[in-house]
Design a protein around this nucleic acid. Structure first.
Lengths: 108, 108
DNA sequence: TCATTTTATCGTAAAAATACGATAATAAAA
DNA sequence: TTTTATTATCGTATTTTTACGATAAAATGA
């Protein structure tokens, strides 16, 4: 990627792509599932639930945070993450809209 | 990624992540949009519609093909792509199910 | 037949993602 | 205060992604 060409696309396309990228690793799918299973916030049990090292899980959590899909209250040693349901629902409907504009085609 | 850890996750998580990865670049979002606008198949007008070189667009098309989101009939000089609507709809509902399991949480 | 047009592929380079160990930081517990 | 437990960050290595130019392939048109 000798030059970042992403800025040559529309904001909508960039946003949709950025959110899809946040979901583009099975570990992050698994983290979201894990957070959804515990309806209360979770801390480091995520690490035990995943086949990855602590630092790697922390990286994936950071990606999900940056994308806005989860929230985290970093209170000292015991940080606590949870789903950002409003962002998740917004993303879900944005994706739904996108798929709807695609799905009604008759082609080939 | 000193070792491919993706196989340590469930097939569902891998599939969902793989499809999200196919959407994780604005060029590929734009390609899908472009294919949807022309309800007939399109060939190389995609290249003119995108701010990328021909070989790069071809690579993105290959990614979308691999993911099954588009179909391509490579008939000689003039290959023809179109949306794979069934795969797109299947992906859309899979994502919808995933978001539904996430969206009903009350947390933090 | 030969040129032209269109597209895929190859080779390459740079950037980003992924993963881990080691370390730092921070609050609670002893 | 010192220790312990938990988590983020740093440094690094490897892989993958992204991008382009150049080339090859393949059918159409002259």
């Amino acid at each position: 990627m000798p030059a970042a060409r992403k800025d040559a696309f529309s904001p909508e396309e960039q946003q949709l792509a950025a959110l899809a990228r946040a979901l583009s690793h099975p570990a992050r799918i698994a983290i979201l599932r894990e957070l959804a299973q515990h309806n209360t916030c979770i801390c480091g049990e995520i690490v035990s639930a995943l086949p990855l090292s602590q630092s790697t899980v922390s990286q994936h959590l950071h990606v999900l945070l940056e994308a806005g899909l989860i929230q985290g209250t970093v209170d000292g040693p015991r940080s606590c993450y949870c789903l950002n349901t409003s962002a998740i629902n917004a993303f879900g409907s944005a994706l739904g809209d996108f798929f709807q504009t695609l799905g009604n085609q008759q082609c080939c």
